[in-house]
């Protein structure tokens, strides 16, 4: 069974069609959830709008629970899925740089594409900035290569890192997410409303 394309159940030509369809749905969901608005996105850092946290955590929890149920039922082979590789320091430093970029620019790449589609000029500039950033990285690759390729831990999951069964980790993540939702609602009630 799944994943269908790597297992050769669907031919490779479908890959492109599915890519466009998935992108279509992805863009629609992001835009309809309000992710094309940088002020709504930035709200999560100032406590006036927690849409990012809610959408992000709900999506993560739903997908991880769903995938593991499908794995249990034998519909999908978890071993075949692409696991984002862990380069410890690259992830931390790259993430930190992205964090500053996020709060300064108010977008992340996916949401900026949505905002580009509906004509936000700040998003056009932002996307141009991302491309400039990629360009700078590529030109400085010889300097950054050590960081980029260093501290490689493999395509590991939390199951390997903590040596706890996946089910317990998922349960823990779910509880963390629910607590975060609850706390975010309390915080939002206390913070002055910002209209945007």
């Amino acid at each position: 069974m799944g994943p269908l394309i790597p297992n050769g159940i669907l031919t490779n030509e479908w890959n492109i069609i599915i890519a466009v369809l998935i992108g279509l749905a992805f863009g629609f969901i992001l835009e309809a959830s309000g992710f094309s608005s940088s002020r709504k996105l930035a709200g999560v850092f100032y406590g006036y709008d927690f849409a990012v946290l809610k959408v992000f955590f709900t999506a993560a929890v739903v997908s991880v629970i769903g995938l593991y149920y499908m794995d249990y039922l034998g519909w999908i082979d978890m071993g075949m899925l692409y696991v984002h590789p862990t380069y410890l320091w690259a992830a931390i430093i790259g993430g930190a740089i992205m964090g500053v970029g996020f709060v300064a620019g108010g977008f992340c790449p996916g949401t900026s594409l949505c905002a580009v589609a509906i004509g936000k000029l700040d998003a056009w500039v932002y996307v141009f900035g991302i491309m400039l950033g990629v360009f700078i990285f590529s030109e400085a690759y010889s300097v950054l290569e050590g960081l980029y390729n260093g501290s490689f831990l493999g395509n590991i999951t939390l199951v390997d890192s903590f040596d706890i069964p996946a089910n317990y980790i998922i349960f823990g993540v779910t509880i963390i997410a629910l607590v975060a939702f609850f706390v975010s609602d309390i915080v939002r009630k206390r913070i002055k409303k910002v209209f945007y």
Binding site: G94, G95, M98, G110, F128, F137, L144
Partner: peptide
């Protein structure tokens, strides 16, 4: 926005991926 974009582009390459 430009400044944030540059940082995000740089960071996304170092970390091999963005938020999505």
């Amino acid at each position: 926005a430009l400044f944030g974009g540059i940082l995000f582009g740089l960071g996304a390459q170092i970390a091999r991926g963005c938020t999505s």
